[in-house]
């Protein structure tokens, strides 16, 4: 019943699509997607402004947890002056970088990806498949969480202050490289999270898995030298949590052992992104819609 009804819905909808010339005949250009994304942004801003207090309170929550992480580092360094070779302000820069990546990821993707299992469970995904846009684009970017950008700024502030305390002024190339690696990091988190949520095509309820990913974030903000053995291998090469914020932070504070680390991070990010695309396509192929 399910695939049949999906097809018939597609047919039923066609005249509707034609009657809207604004979307153009074959909308697949970059410009078109940019204007679509701008519309999604507008929507998100309007939605957030509907609940102003809540919007502000969420920023407070995130800021509080950030302070919590920083105070953890502060307390650690009351009792030691180095973790491996990492000094206090280097670790603070690392925690800040991790927070920056996490918050930008939250702002752009998190709400959307966590909603996927719900879309599958309720069959809402059907509607998205029918829209004349790339479905991955839509499920990844539908909502923007503006609070995340505010928190990203506070993270940048902390990184800046840590650099000041280190007495280190990074060069122009370093800063550009850092920002690019931050983008790589966000992409990596995004691809991994998409793969995890795509598992809800099979298990339907994926909350446990999504929650599990939150635990992985927690590793990313710790200095890589604190780890060894299997743990380090797994979280460097399979789930590169120990690279994602360590590499940009190390580049920024002049701590990078060799450029090989950057290469490794970028390569893994590309591989994981490709893997997520393959998994996404496989998952969509076997999607048979819920109920209906």
């Amino acid at each position: 019943m399910m695939p049949m009804s999906r097809e018939s819905k597609v047919e039923g909808r066609e005249p509707d699509g034609v009657s809207r010339p604004a979307l153009g005949p074959r909308p697949s250009t970059l410009g078109h997607y940019l204007s679509l994304y701008a519309a999604l942004w507008r929507n998100s801003v309007i939605r957030e402004m509907g609940f102003k207090t809540n919007f502000l309170l969420w920023i407070v929550v995130e800021a509080l947890w950030f302070v919590l992480q920083l105070s953890f580092i502060g307390v650690l360094y009351l009792h030691t002056d180095h973790i491996g070779t990492w000094t206090k302000w280097q670790v603070i820069a690392l925690v800040g970088t991790s927070h920056l990546i996490q918050q930008l990821f939250t702002a752009l993707f998190l709400t959307n990806l966590t909603a996927l299992s719900e879309h599958i469970r309720t069959g809402k995904l059907d509607f998205m498949l029918l829209l004349p846009v790339n479905t991955r684009f839509l499920i990844s970017l539908r909502q923007v969480d503006l609070g995340g950008f505010v928190n990203a700024f506070s993270a940048l502030g902390v990184v800046g202050y840590a650099l000041h305390r280190l007495g280190h002024t990074p060069g122009f190339v370093q800063v550009i490289g850092y920002l690019m690696l931050v983008v790589v990091g966000i992409t990596l988190h995004y691809s991994l999270m998409l793969m995890l949520t795509a598992s809800s095509f099979w298990t339907v309820r994926a909350q446990g898995i999504v929650w599990g990913y939150y635990n992985l974030f927690n590793i990313a903000r710790l200095p890589d030298e604190a780890f060894r053995g299997t743990f380090k291998v797994v979280f460097t090469f399979a789930l590169p949590m120990l690279l994602v914020s360590n590499v940009p932070a190390k580049l920024l504070v002049d701590k990078l052992g060799s450029p090989f680390e950057i290469l490794l991070l970028v390569t893994l990010a590309v591989l994981i992104f490709l893997a997520s695309e393959i998994l996404w396509r496989t998952a969509l192929k076997r999607y048979t819609s819920a109920s209906s």
């Binding site: 030691t80 180095h82 973790i83 491996g84 309820r205 446990g208 929650w211 599990g212």
Partner: peptide, 26 residues
Amino acid sequence: NFLFRASFGLVPLMAVISVWRTIYLG
């Protein structure tokens, strides 16, 4: 769901133990 929660929770636990081990080493 609980099993996932409990098992995933062990990952950051392992991480924090590793950090302390490194601190004690130094």
